[in-house]
Simulated assay, not measured.
Amino acid sequence: MELIVLWDIDHTLIENAGVSKEIYAAAFSSLTGREPTAPARTEGRTDRLIMRDMFLRDGLPVPEWPAVEDALARAGHDRLGELRSRGTALPGVPEILKAASLRSGWVSSVLTGNIAANAHVKLSAFGLDSLLDLSVGSYGADAELRPELVPIARARIRRLRGVPADVPTVLVGDTPRDVEAALASGSGIVAVASGIHNSKELAEAGALEILPDLSDTKGVLSILEFFAARGKRPRTSLHRPRTR
C-alpha cells in the first residue's frame, strides 16, 4: 500500500518554546532597523504571510521576498543552539517518524509554513531531519496560503520519487489551517491537539481523526494504514475527538 504522509513541524513534531517568534522578530529587525510593534501571528500560517503581515501591520512597505527569506534563514541559523536548549521533540515523534520512514511504498515528508532552511534547522536540532524525505516537502516560501502547499508537495513527489498521482495523501498537523489544507485538497487529515488548538476546535474545523499527541506509535500507524488502504479519509472516526 502506497501513501504520502506530510507532517507539520511546529507543535506537531516539535515544541519551539518561543524561538519561532524570535526568528520572525529578528528577521524583521534586520530588514527595518527596529523591532516589530507586536509578535508575529503564526497559528499554521506560512512564512510569506506571517512576514508580509508584520510589515503591513507596522505601516511599512513589504520587501522583495528573496530579501525576507534570506533574513529568515540567517535568523533561524543563528538560533539553532537556543532551539536545542529550550525546545524539544514532542512525545513519540522520533518513533513514529522512524516507523513511517521504514514503510515500503510510503513517502514521509513535511508540509510546513516554515521556509526550507528553517524547517531543516528545527528538525535537525532534535535529530529528526534524517527520518524525513525533506527534498520533496512543501515549505513556506512555496506559496502564501497553506492549501496551496499540498499540490506542490504532490507534484514534487511525483516528479522526484515517481509516485503515481492517485496515491492517497495524509496531512498530520495541529491547527485548523492544517485541516483546511487537507479538506481543500482532498487529502486525509490526522489532527493532533498538541498545540494551542484543542480537540473541539479541530473537530469544528472538520477533522475526524484527532489525537492528543503522537505518542501511540501503533495507533498512529493504524490510522495511516487505514488511509493507505482506503485512499480517502474515513467516514467515521477511529479515535473520537476529545476536548483537552
Rank of each mutant, 00 (worst) to 15 (best):
G188A: 13
L211T: 04
P176W: 01
A165C: 07
G219E: 13
V220K: 07
R177V: 07
G137E: 15
E144W: 14
F126M: 06
V121C: 10
K200D: 12
D174F: 10
R159A: 12
Y139D: 06
G162A: 13
I157D: 14
T169N: 11
G127S: 04
L160I: 04
A116T: 09
L171N: 04
D166R: 02
P168Y: 06
S194K: 03
V220G: 03
V150A: 02
I157P: 15
V136H: 12
A143C: 06
D178Q: 09
V136K: 02
R158S: 06
G188Y: 00
R154K: 15
R146K: 14
N198W: 12
H120T: 11
K122R: 12
A193R: 15
P212F: 11
I189P: 07
A165P: 11
S138G: 10
E144D: 12
P212A: 08
I152G: 02
R177W: 07
N118L: 08
A205H: 10
R158L: 01
A205R: 09
P151W: 03
T175S: 13
G140E: 03
K218H: 12
A193K: 12
E209V: 14
L149R: 06
V220R: 08
H120Q: 12
L160Y: 08
G206H: 15
H197V: 05
D174Y: 06
V179S: 02
G127E: 05
G137V: 06
E144A: 13
D166Q: 01
A119D: 02
I152R: 08
V170E: 07
L134V: 01
N118W: 11
A153C: 00
L202V: 10
G219V: 01
G206P: 14
S138W: 00
D174A: 01
T217W: 12
R159W: 06
G140Y: 00
R156G: 00
D213P: 05
A116D: 10
Y139T: 07
L134I: 06
A182K: 08
A193Q: 14
L149C: 08
L128Y: 00
A117W: 07
E209Y: 03
S199A: 14
D213M: 08
E201S: 13
A191E: 12
I157Y: 15
V179H: 01
A203K: 11
D142T: 01
H197D: 05
P151D: 01
A155V: 08
P151H: 02
R158Q: 09
A116Y: 07
A182C: 02
I157W: 14
K200H: 11
L183D: 08
V179R: 08
A184G: 01
